[in-house]
């Protein structure tokens, strides 16, 4: 893996809910708000759909940062999906912090469909945070490194 060279750019996986944050990203685009191109968007029906498995699996596969974004509380297309998600994310976020995953790797936000500018700000903020942290190594699976010694014992 290429370690931090000067032109290193993080890869950030963004799970965006279809009804608010994804539309917010769309609005940011049509409104020509600039935001870093580091995010790779995965469109999900609702932030409540995003499971811990998906987040950790993205980290494992080498994402440098994660952003999960859904509708503001009260605005969920499915009425309460984001409320459930909020409880789960609060616990997950604390648990990841507890095991020593750097704060800022996994991020959560609320962005509505009308908040194109806010979406750009959130992405800007998350990208800066992840850039400051450098490329992810914790909970990232590397199979090339395994070959050498684990083989032996």
């Amino acid at each position: 893996m290429t370690e931090q060279s000067t032109n290193w750019e993080p890869k950030i996986i963004a799970f965006l809910c279809n009804w608010c944050s994804y539309a917010g990203a769309d609005l940011a685009g049509v409104s020509r708000f600039q935001y870093p191109s580091n995010i790779r968007i995965v469109r999900v029906p609702c932030s409540g759909r995003v499971s811990e498995n998906m987040i950790l699996s993205a980290l494992k596969s080498g994402a440098d940062g994660i952003l999960v974004s859904g509708c503001h509380p009260g605005d969920c297309h499915y009425i309460s999906g984001n409320y459930f998600a909020r409880r789960r994310f609060a616990l997950l976020s604390n648990l990841l912090d507890f095991i020593g995953v750097e704060p800022g790797r996994v991020n959560f936000s609320w962005v509505s469909a009308s908040e194109g500018e806010q979406f750009a700000e959130v992405v800007q903020g998350v990208t800066e945070k992840v850039k400051a942290l450098g490329s992810a190594s914790r909970l990232v699976k590397k199979i090339d490194a395994l070959e050498t010694e684990l083989q032996v014992a």
Binding site: A90, S93, F108, S109, V111, V122
Partner: peptide, 11 residues
């Protein structure tokens, strides 16, 4: 709950 803590949110 409507007012569950959400300090962990980026925004």
């Amino acid at each position: 709950a409507m007012d569950d803590p959400q300090k962990f949110m980026a925004n």
